[in-house]
């Protein structure tokens, strides 16, 4: 749908369109915050409700996917605030992306260790940076990450690069410590 079509389309039409194309990503983003459990499903439901309630305010100024990702991130953060707990990003057990961030030439046998390091590291990040990492792992383009968070694209890129450099340093240090 184009921006002009969104202005004329019915609420039901836009919602159906939105869910058909983005349902998978909504759940995927929720899982970074809540893991692969019922809580992620509950938050997903809440995201769908918020999309339905706010769909009339969507003017097609950004992509529908970006708009939905933004609602997903905001809902996840709000739900985390309600549960009042710190969180590490939940990485899928078979995730290669996290290991890729740490070391491009990683050893398959050390993947578990890498994921553990990644989990510990993300726990220490502030919620903004956790969100940036989650979106990066979800392979959301930088321009969309910027639109979701409200940062500039250059700023989002810089922050993600810094986070990657930090985690790589941590990994190297750990590796060097073990060798000594």
């Amino acid at each position: 749908m184009t921006a002009s079509e969104y202005k004329t389309a019915s609420r039901e039409q836009i919602f159906t369109d939105a869910i058909r194309d983005n349902e998978k990503q909504i759940l995927s983003v929720c899982r970074y915050y809540f893991g692969n459990n019922a809580e992620a499903q509950d938050v997903r439901q809440e995201v769908l409700l918020k999309v339905w309630l706010n769909i009339s305010s969507f003017r097609g100024e950004s992509q529908l996917k970006t708009w939905i990702t933004r609602i997903t991130v905001n809902t996840c953060l709000t739900c985390l605030a309600k549960s009042n707990r710190d969180f590490a990003l939940f990485i899928r057990p078979g995730s290669l992306e996290a290991a890729d961030i740490i070391d491009e030439e990683y050893d398959e046998t050390r993947k578990e260790e890498m994921l553990q390091l990644f989990s510990d590291f993300t726990r220490s990040l502030n919620p903004f940076d956790k969100t940036l990492v989650a979106l990066y792992l979800e392979e959301v383009p930088y321009i969309e990450i910027a639109q979701v968070t409200g940062l500039t694209e250059a700023n989002a890129r810089t922050r993600i690069s810094r986070i990657k450099a930090q985690i790589q340093n941590n990994w190297r240090k750990r590796y060097e410590d073990k060798q000594q």
């Binding site: 918020k50 309630l53 706010n54 305010s57 969507f58 708009w67 933004r70 609602i71 991130v73 905001n74 953060l77 903004f128 969100t131 639109q147 979701v148 968070t149 409200g150 940062l151």
Partner: peptide, 14 residues
């Protein structure tokens, strides 16, 4: 407004 919920986090902070 409730639609503020759909704003980017930084815009909401502003």
């Amino acid at each position: 407004p409730s639609s503020a919920y759909t704003l980017p986090i930084m815009d909401y902070l502003r």
